[in-house]
Amino acid sequence: MPGDHGGVVPPVRYRSSDEDSARWLEFAFRPGDIVISTRSKSGTTWMQMICALLVFRTPDLSAPLNELSPWVDWLVEPADKVFARLEAQRHRRFVKTHTPLDGVVLDPRATYVVVARHPLDMAVSLYHQGANIDRDRLRELTGQPAAEPSPERAQPARPRPPLREWLLSWAASEADPREEMDSLPGVAWHLSDAWARRDQPNVVLVHYDDLSADLEGQMRRLADILGIEVPEGTWPALVQAATFDRMRARADELTPNPAGVLKDNAAFFRRGRSGAGREILGDDEWANYRARTQAMVPADLWAWLHREQAAG
């Protein structure tokens, strides 16, 4: 039952201005549940779509993706509304979280899918996504006070720093992973925690670059792990529906924007090229980033995460 965890140590609580992982204590699991745990801009919506295609075995979804696959710990939607919708679902459920696995209730009946991405590429996408968020609307929906009028606010808004400057600042951050989960320390902890659990039978790690390089192969792999049988003749349509171009064409249906937090649904599907983050850094800056991140995560995780940069 919700809130009863049999004496198990409760999960770590992660909180931000619009997320609270404590909601997981009220989540009533069912056998077969799928929990998609990722950092922002690491392939979350992509994996939700893949799971939808596998569960329903058709590209024709019965409702918008964010209704079929709610973001459990997002404060924009009241918890009772989210849980009522999940309780009413009769299909195999697949839900979204940006919380690391140590902050989510781990139920042996569920499968936890963690999608990882090169941190610098994730950060570049995060930078661009920042310009697409309506901050005033987000504050309104999460019950935060509106920004107070001031002489400073009467002036034109300060421009965002250039991408290179922002990325270097992001790579130098010393933020608390429990409070700034999209910081470099937050990304490192999220993936290190999942990596340590990768041998557990209900934990699956997927690399964003593998999805890009072999979408069908990764979808078939996931179907096998989840025990989902897909008729052979159905595969081409499912794989095509999970491509970037097809998903972007369905942006209004697939974008996680139920309350108008995003300014432009289509802009959410920005094609992020693997390796773009590394190209921004000079050799000395890359060396600094590499040394810092190699001290933050296990060596084998670093190599798996960074791919072609692993030996450099």
Score class of each variant (00 low, 15 high):
195 W>E: 01
239 V>P: 05
232 E>D: 14
234 T>N: 01
256 P>L: 14
286 W>S: 01
225 I>E: 06
223 A>C: 14
215 L>K: 08
214 D>N: 03
201 P>H: 03
276 A>S: 15
263 K>T: 07
208 Y>K: 04
240 Q>P: 00
288 N>L: 09
205 L>F: 09
273 R>Y: 08
241 A>M: 04
256 P>Y: 15
223 A>Y: 14
250 R>H: 12
215 L>M: 09
261 V>P: 03
244 F>W: 15
279 E>K: 11
266 A>Q: 11
197 R>V: 01
219 M>S: 06
190 H>M: 01
195 W>N: 01
213 A>H: 12
243 T>F: 10
232 E>V: 04
229 E>F: 04
189 W>R: 14
209 D>I: 12
224 D>F: 12
247 M>Y: 13
205 L>K: 05
220 R>M: 13
202 N>S: 00
200 Q>S: 09
242 A>V: 04
285 E>C: 10
237 A>W: 00
194 A>W: 01
198 R>V: 00
270 R>C: 04
246 R>S: 12
255 T>N: 05
210 D>W: 03
233 G>M: 02
252 D>I: 12
254 L>G: 06
265 N>A: 12
262 L>C: 12
279 E>C: 03
211 L>Q: 08
195 W>D: 01
225 I>S: 06
277 G>D: 06
271 R>G: 11
231 P>I: 03
281 L>I: 10
257 N>I: 07
265 N>C: 09
192 S>W: 01
270 R>F: 05
247 M>K: 11
273 R>F: 08
190 H>R: 01
212 S>A: 11
222 L>S: 06
263 K>Y: 08
251 A>W: 12
279 E>F: 02
230 V>N: 09
272 G>A: 12
248 R>Y: 12
202 N>K: 00
270 R>Y: 03
260 G>M: 08
251 A>C: 11
273 R>E: 14
255 T>P: 01
215 L>Q: 04
280 I>K: 13
209 D>A: 15
214 D>P: 02
270 R>G: 04
261 V>G: 03
210 D>Q: 14
270 R>E: 02
265 N>K: 13
221 R>V: 12
245 D>R: 09
262 L>A: 08
233 G>T: 04
263 K>E: 04
200 Q>P: 05
234 T>V: 11
209 D>Y: 09
264 D>V: 10
276 A>T: 14
199 D>W: 00
273 R>L: 13
255 T>L: 05
247 M>Q: 13
210 D>S: 09
288 N>C: 06
274 S>K: 15
202 N>R: 00
228 I>G: 06
